[in-house]
Amino acid sequence: MTDLSASGWTPDRAAELPPGTAPGRVSRVDRGLLSVLTAAGDARVHPAAALYDADPGGPAVGDWVAIRGELAVAVLPRRSAFVRTVAGRTSAAQVVAANLDVVLVVDALIGETRLRRVERYLAVAWSSGATPVVVLTKADLCDDVPAAVELVAEDALGVRVLAVSAVTGEGLDDVRALLGPGRTAAMVGPSGVGKSSLANALAGRTLVATREIRDDGRGRHTTTARELHVLPGGGLLVDTPGMRELGLYDDTEGVGTAYADVALLAAECRFRDCRHRTEPGCAVAAAIVDGRLDPARMVAWRKLQAEAHRQLLRVDARARAAEHARVRAFHRSLRDQPHR
């Protein structure tokens, strides 16, 4: 028997369990099977078909599920979740990881600065309900770590920025301090930024296979599935595959938080419908002119705002279409069976 508090279980969740079930935390999702952490140890259970009816549907890594026998019959309410739009031309949501305390937005301290990419991940992370932290890897390959960290910190408002090296161990204790017993973090970021190497360094053993670094200093990410790992100090870490694209999912609130400085300036504009171009009394334009705001950051803010708005419209349209289809099916059934 194991203490489930080490897996993040809290006593108040007991009321959420259906009668006759036991809790388990999803550590990996495979086709037709869930790997779960239970009081009796690791187990493999089948998800009930009803688990995929919800939107966003299906159990995700980090979820707590109610288990009856060898079947997971319910997903307990999520306290937090990192959610993105499924890659491709779709408005469907995908839960990357659930019930997180911390979201580690991982990027590398080599190559050109990728501020816009970090900002996009932070916008989604702020909406997750967890605390975002930026982790900049490969500090041993960077000539001026303090300057690189400061550059990112200027845009990552209200977010702690840590520089780490899986090779020298620099900064690893700062990351471990975020992951006390029962606390869960998810690492998110593109391929090759060192997420797998960081996971292995935090665990003190090989959790995830890595490949040799390429000529440009970037690694080749080999994680193929999201998985929850238990660390020696009692924390839990979700390693995720690199994301080729991170689509916002109904994320206007996260965009506003990630770009709080721009949003505050926009609120000071003379006109409420200011487009921040040539309108008189535009506080955003004035901040760009006097050097208080990077124009590239303003452009990124407008781009993510527009993307979040389009996604919201797509989600609403899908919901309306589903409701219209339900009503049509209902009336069609009445016509087919008028006396029932």
Rank of each mutant, 00 (worst) to 15 (best):
G233C: 10
G234P: 13
G234A: 11
G235E: 12
G235I: 14
G235P: 08
G235K: 10
L236F: 05
L236I: 13
L236D: 06
L237F: 07
V238F: 10
V238R: 05
V238S: 04
D239C: 09
D239W: 08
D239H: 08
T240L: 14
T240C: 12
T240I: 14
T240P: 04
P241S: 11
P241Q: 12
P241H: 14
P241F: 11
G242T: 13
G242S: 11
G242D: 08
M243P: 01
M243R: 09
M243D: 04
M243N: 02
R244T: 13
R244C: 09
R244P: 02
R244D: 11
R244N: 13
E245C: 07
E245I: 10
G247T: 07
G247P: 07
G247Y: 00
G247K: 09
G247M: 06
L248C: 05
L248P: 05
L248W: 03
Y249V: 12
Y249N: 11
Y249C: 09
D250A: 13
D250E: 15
D251T: 15
D251R: 10
D251C: 15
D251Q: 15
T252Y: 00
T252I: 14
T252S: 14
T252F: 01
E253I: 08
E253G: 03
G254Y: 02
G254A: 11
V255P: 06
V255G: 03
V255Y: 03
G256D: 15
T257N: 03
T257P: 01
A258E: 10
A258F: 04
Y259K: 13
Y259R: 12
A260L: 15
A260P: 06
A260W: 04
A260E: 15
D261M: 07
D261K: 10
D261Y: 06
D261P: 06
D261I: 06
D261S: 08
V262A: 06
V262E: 02
V262Y: 08
V262K: 13
A263G: 03
A263P: 07
A263C: 08
A263T: 14
A263F: 05
A263W: 03
A263K: 08
L264M: 12
L264G: 00
L265F: 03
L265K: 08
L265T: 02
A266P: 01
A266K: 02
A267W: 00
A267T: 11
A267C: 10
A267G: 15
E268W: 00
E268L: 13
E268I: 00
E268V: 02
E268Y: 00
R270G: 00
R270L: 01
F271Q: 03
F271S: 01
F271V: 09
R272P: 02
R272W: 00
R272C: 00
D273W: 04
D273L: 06
D273H: 11
D273G: 12
D273S: 09
D273V: 04
R275E: 11
R275D: 04
R275Y: 00
R275I: 09
R275V: 07
R275T: 14
R275W: 00
H276E: 07
H276M: 08
H276L: 07
R277V: 15
R277T: 15
R277I: 13
R277N: 02
R277Q: 12
T278W: 00
T278H: 12
T278A: 07
E279D: 01
E279N: 04
E279V: 10
E279Y: 02
P280Q: 11
P280H: 06
G281I: 14
G281H: 09
G281D: 02
C282K: 13
C282S: 04
C282E: 02
C282T: 09
A283M: 08
A283E: 08
V284L: 11
V284Q: 10
